[in-house]
Design a protein around this nucleic acid. Structure first.
Lengths: 157, 157
DNA sequence: GGTGAAATCCTCGAGTG
DNA sequence: CACTCGAGGATTTCACC
């Protein structure tokens, strides 16, 4: 019942951490005009109430040889439980994310693979794993993500 | 043009930073059996060669009142340049990501909004902004992401 | 929310195989 | 060239105001 109660300063901190998740508390403190301890307490609290779920590195997978990205729409019989859909999809290591959908299709999954042969292999595996009735794959040519243009790390001369 | 040359240790470091992007170099050093300085140099190098594009906080937007997530497929006339598609989509602050697609549809965009009325408003705006010939919106009920500590969420608007 | 001090961590130059 | 060591400075962390 208790609402998060995330104020404007919290939002500014979240914005700073979206741009650079490794920003120091001292830097953020200067930015928002609070003490370092106050900033740490706020960030700790945002984690405790679940607003912040974690921190992660952002990787250019193409540079690691995983150059193909795709979304696959999955259709299932009406009798298939959602948990089953998620389980079969998450089993494949190439699957990066699974979104269950209201309506048609039943799920949308994000995939990363090395090449098109690998993609076909993953899709075939998915079709066989559950009782999938149909798939449609969208091959990604290019992508843009908000806040993806992260500036270089702060340098102290 | 030198290839990345990312070895097994680098992959272990990337894996650690995917799980927790704020891990300290000391902790990672213990994990992979190197000195702190060696780990720092490797991470610095991964940034320089572009494998690591940045670090970001992971946020549960539902807890911030942005409880609705959706994917919208966009179709354009054959004459529309890709840059135009990306530009009109990224103009909307609710758009989190834009994926240009080979074939049909022409683009897939990820959206975050406060409620369904807001969603309709964003979609209407998108339809009017460019010369969109058609849209199809997939409403997300739950999601799972690899290496995310958050379990799939379900929310009622 | 602020302060201060101890513990920890980051950073970089110097040295080694 | 990649690594280790070590020292100085910055950052984190926590009890207390």
């Amino acid at each position: 019942m208790n609402e998060p109660a995330v104020d404007a300063t919290d939002h500014r901190l979240l914005r700073l951490l979206r741009e650079d998740g490794r920003r120091t508390f001292s830097e953020m403190a200067t930015e928002v005009g609070l003490s370092v301890a106050a900033v740490k307490r706020r960030v700790d609290r945002l984690r405790e109430i679940g607003v912040i779920t974690g921190f992660a590195v952002q990787i250019d997978y193409a540079k690691l040889g995983w150059g193909i990205e795709a979304f696959t729409e999955l259709r299932y019989p009406g009798t298939t439980p959602v948990s089953e859909i998620v389980r079969t999809a998450t089993d494949a290591p190439e699957v990066q994310a699974v979104y269950t959908i209201a309506g048609d299709p039943d799920a949308l999954i994000q995939i990363r693979v090395r090449d098109l042969g690998h993609l076909q292999q993953v899709i075939d595996r998915l079709r066989r794993a559950g009782d999938v009735t149909g798939t449609k794959t969208l091959l990604v040519l290019g992508s843009w993500t908000r806040d993806s243009l992260t500036s270089p790390r702060r340098r102290t001369p």
